[in-house]
């Protein structure tokens, strides 16, 4: 297969958003993180094909871009479910029994940290301190911060995300 076929085409919308970021920056490569986040917002994650297409748009090597993509924990290089559940495992939540909350969530969703449910509904990830320690223990589902969480509220919380 030629390289051309491996490179997915970015949508006009994605390209326009990335070019808009580039227009505020001294060079194209400086938009690397913004570009990855833009494409992820549209596609949920960064596939190898997306990575190559972005690298080409930014005039940089795909290897260098991958070094950047894999450095940041909010950039997903593997597919994720429709809803990403991130549970804080840092010290303030730890004190407020985050470890038993994590166990209950894993049990409830039937998956371990880093896994996605078979129906692609949830991906479960650990996250460092979410900056809401007065509401510990906390989790973030997609863009929503939730806490403090009592384990018996979990069913009700997950029901809101389909």
């Amino acid at each position: 297969m030629t390289e051309e076929l491996l490179v997915a085409n970015l949508s006009d919308e994605e390209i326009a958003e990335i070019e808009s970021e580039i227009s505020h920056l001294p060079d194209r490569e400086s938009a690397a993180i913004d570009a990855l986040m833009i494409v992820q917002r549209h596609r949920g994650w960064i596939s190898d094909e997306s990575l190559q297409a972005i690298a080409r748009l930014l005039d940089m090597s795909a290897a260098k871009l991958d070094g950047i993509a894999t450095f940041y924990n909010l950039i997903f290089r593997r597919p994720v479910g429709r809803n990403v559940v991130m549970i804080c495992d840092s010290v303030s939540c730890y004190i407020m029994k985050a470890e038993s909350l994590i166990e209950k969530v894993q049990e409830k969703l039937g998956i371990q940290m880093g896994e996605t449910t078979e129906d692609d509904r949830f991906t479960l990830l650990p996250i460092v301190c979410l900056g809401a320690c007065d509401r510990a223990p906390t989790m973030q589902i997609n863009e929503e911060l939730i806490g403090p969480i009592e384990p018996d509220q979990l069913d009700e919380i997950f029901a809101r995300f389909t």
Binding site: H24, L25, E29, S30, A31, A32, I33, D34, L36, M37, G67, I68, F71, Y72, N73, L74, I75, V128
Partner: peptide, 29 residues
């Protein structure tokens, strides 16, 4: 004055001043 927001890709080390600047430049932090 042009003021813009850079939304981070995530990592604690971005809070270190010079790592933050590398991240702002689109590099590994």
């Amino acid at each position: 004055l042009d003021l813009r927001i850079h939304s981070s890709g995530g990592r604690y080390i971005c809070g270190e001043e010079t790592a933050l600047l590398n991240a702002l430049e689109g590099k590994r932090a």
